[in-house]
Every structure is written in structure tokens, then in C-alpha cells.
Amino acid sequence: MKEFRYERPTDADSAVALLTDAPGAAYLGGGTNLVDLMKLGVAAPDLLVDVSRLPFEEVEETDGGGLRVGAAVRNSTLAARRMVRERYPIVSEALLSGASAQLRNAATVGGNLLQRTRCLYFQDVGKPCNKRRPGSGCPAREGVHRDLAILGASEHCVATHPSDLAVALAALDAMVHLVSAAGPRSLPLTELHRLPGDEPHRDTVLRHGELITAVELPPPVPEARSAYRKARDRASYAFALASVAAVLQVRGGMVHHVRIAFGALAARPWRARTAEEALLGQPATEEAFGEAVDRELAAARPLRDNGYKVPLARRLAVSVLTDLAAPDAGGQR
């Protein structure tokens, strides 16, 4: 770990100012991923600007009936909020399915969204990786890639995004609020993360110095039910092999509103817009769900050892949607 300076500003403007003028600087939230990467030599900031104590620790209802979550709110705090559990249960479920209680107690909402891939090559500075060292190559394509992407990858990178929370937020049409030297801006969560293309070192569309201040959830869709399910090797404390977050509203047996997002399939939470469009106005049946998801996954380009993710994602999604469509069959509100 390289030496670094440490600053803990008391307001966002100072934090942004500190980072804007320092190209080698990074924000420090809970540190559960950044400190890990610094120890591995993957991240080597020369200045850490601690934003974990900035006044972004509120979870509050918005005027429009949505929810605004400060970026410094700890994962466990958010998961435990009654308002979240009742109105956005998949946020709580997704959070609680990830990491461990200790990590959730430290990790912040903003940091969770900005955590980096767990691709083994990315984490090993002794090996090439285009995300870590642009132009050095991607050995994962031919190497060890069981956990890696089947959607939206490029020849330069097949990393997946590891967040569970981001998958739930993608299905909920969340907005991300940012601030930078140029002022505040907002963008949909689904537009925060980038696909690798030929710039895999850029995980997100954030500019240097831009800071996540909050995540905002629109009001829950009335009468819609939602669920988050995750498949993994270990029963707890493991990243997803694949996960799905779904929101479904059925009227008269027909799909009236549907949101599907996959985790662990791509470099960003994967909103299944093709499947959603295919389902709208269709009967809420297992067959229809299967056909729609197949259309989405037709874009999959699996590698030698991760082809299982196609049937896994399909079956997860169909199973979750089918449960949600059956009012008393174990699906959730």
C-alpha cells in the first residue's frame, strides 16, 4: 500500500474541491472495498478524502412519496429501516443477501454502488487486466471466468458488477444524485455503470471528483409485488452466480407493469428491457415469462465455463416472476 494523505472535510463542497484538484485522490466511504483494493495494490490513491461522516446519513420520504437515501447511510441501517422493508422490500432483501453483517455495518450506500469487480485477474496485480491496467489484456476470457459476464462484455473485459443492492435499485427505477465542481446532477441508476467496450477501466459515467450524495426511489408501484433472489455457491457470505430483482403488477391476468434486473451477468446491473417490453400486456404465465426472458438472454455470449448462467438466470427469473404472479404462492408484495 502506497502512502497517502488523509482529509476529512465536513461538507460536500470541500470534499469535492479537495478531489477535483487532485487527480490521484479518491473518496473513502466505508472502505470495505477500497481499503481491500489498496492492500492488494489495485488502488493506490495519494489522497483519501473521507466522506463517510458527511451529512448524507438520512433516509427520508420525498414530497412525491418516494424515498431519499443519503449516500453515507450504512447498508445495514438501510436494510433495517421499517419504511424500506415495508415499501421497498427488495432493497432490504438485496442488501441482506450480500456480504456479512460486519461488512454491511461499515459499507455505505454510495460505496456499495461504486464497488469494483471481484474478477480474480483484476485483483491480482501480478497478472494483466485491462480494467486495472488499460491495454495489458484480458486473460479471463481464456482463463478462469466461471463467475464472469455473459451480457454486455467486450473482448477487452468480461467483468461483472458485484453489488446486490444495485440490482434491486435498477429494478426500482432509482435515481442517483451527484455533486461535482460543476454543481449537482442526477441520473438513473441504470445509467451509472458502464459496459466495458474499449474502456473497461471506466466502471461508471462519473467524472473525477463527482460524489454520490443520495439515491432516490420513486414511489412504489401500487399493487405491484416484488422479489429478489440470488443463487450462490455458499449459503451466505458469497457473491452471486446470478441474481434477479423483479417487480410485477398483474391486472386481470395480464402484465400491467414489470421490471426485471439481473445481477452478476454483466458489468452493470442488467435491466432486462427487452423482456419487460415483451411482457407488457401479455398474460402473466410461466410460458410468457420464459419466452420473454429467452429474448433477453438471446444476447448472451457465454465463455467456455460460464454458459450455465444463461439457464440459471432464465430459471431464476421465470421462477420469481411466476411466484409473483401467483397471489398466494410465496411471492412477496
Binding site: 455457491d233 455458499r234 449459503a235 451466505s236 457470505y237
Partner: peptide, 12 residues
């Protein structure tokens, strides 16, 4: 590492 080499956790 212990994130990729999975030894059983309590839940298993």
C-alpha cells in the same frame, strides 16, 4: 482468498 475459495460458513 477466502472470498473465492469457499470454506463452509455457519449458514451452510
Amino acid at each position: 482468498d477466502l472470498a473465492s475459495y469457499h470454506v463452509p460458513a455457519c449458514a451452510d
